[in-house]
Amino acid sequence: MNSNQNAANQSSLNEWPLWEVFVRSKSGLDHKHCGSLHAADPQMAIQLARDVYTRRLEGCSVWVVRSDQIVASDPADKGMYFDPMEDKVYRHPTFYKLPSEVDHM
C-alpha cells in the first residue's frame, strides 16, 4: 500500500460509508444508477437518496446499496495478462475493512 492509501484508510475510519443509488423514475421502468452519496446507515441512505437524487421526479422508487457490496464483471476486452485490477467496482480506499479494534463500538 502506498502512503496515499494509508492516509485514506486513516480518514476512512471516521467517514460515513459510500452508497450507490438506483432510482426508478416511472413505474414500468428499470432502476437506473444515478450516483453515490455518503450515509451512516441504511435509513439515512434512503432518505438522502430521495433528497439528493429525486428532487425533480415524482412517484419513484429508490434503491441504495453499499458500494463495497457491489461485485462487478471485468470489462470484456481485457486479457488477464494486461489487467491488474481487482474485480471491485471502484479503487476506493474506504472500501477496506476497518481494523477490528474500531470495527465495533
Binding site: A8, S11, N14, L18, G35, V52, R55, R91, H92, P93
Partner: peptide
Amino acid sequence: GGHGLYLYAAAETLGTSRDQ
C-alpha cells in the same frame, strides 16, 4: 449542494475519498 455531491461522487470513483 446537490451538484457538488454528484461531482464528489464522480471524483471518488478515481480512488480518493471525499474526506481527503
